Computed example of a mutant assay.
Amino acid sequence: MLDERKKRILEAIIDDYINTGEPVGSRTIAKKYIFGISSATIRNEMSDLEEMGYLEQPHTSAGRIPSDKGYRYYVDELMKVSRLSPQQVEFIRSQLNVKFNEINEYMENIAKIISNLTNYTAVISTPNVKKSFIKYLQLVPVDSKRYILILVTNTGLVKDILLDKPENVDIKDFIYISNILNEKLSGLKLEDIDQKIILDIENILGKNKTILSPIIENVLRTISAADSTEVVLSGIKNMFDFPEFSDVLKAKIFLHIFEQKEMLRQIINSAMHEHITIRIGTENPIEDLKECSVVLSNYRIGDSIAGSIGIIGPKRLRYSQTVSLIDYICDTLSDILTRLFTE
Score class of each variant (00 low, 15 high):
L55Y: 09
P23S: 08
F133Q: 09
F91Y: 10
S94R: 13
I148N: 11
E56R: 08
T332Y: 03
V24M: 06
P141G: 05
L163P: 05
T229Y: 04
A271I: 05
E77P: 02
Q260S: 12
I311K: 07
Y71N: 07
M52Y: 09
N182T: 10
I198A: 04
V323Q: 09
L337P: 01
I286T: 01
E291S: 13
D68I: 15
N208F: 04
H275L: 15
I211S: 08
M272S: 15
R83T: 12
I305G: 02
I150Y: 14
L181Q: 06
K237A: 13
V294K: 02
A251S: 08
S82P: 01
M1P: 09
I18R: 15
I236Y: 00
G235M: 05
S178P: 01
I175H: 14
S132Y: 11
Y176A: 15
D335M: 14
N44P: 00
L249R: 09
G187S: 10
K69S: 14
G25F: 11
V81W: 05
K31G: 04
S297D: 01
S178G: 00
I92S: 03
T41C: 06
D303G: 12
E274T: 15
E56Y: 06
Y106F: 14
S246F: 02
S178L: 00
G187M: 13
I148Y: 14
V129W: 06
T126P: 01
Q138T: 11
N104T: 12
T222D: 04
G307P: 03
L96A: 03
F35L: 12
K189N: 12
V248Y: 11
I113S: 10
P23A: 08
L10H: 07
N218M: 06
I280L: 09
Q321C: 04
L137S: 02
K99M: 02
G25K: 15
Q95T: 01
I150M: 11
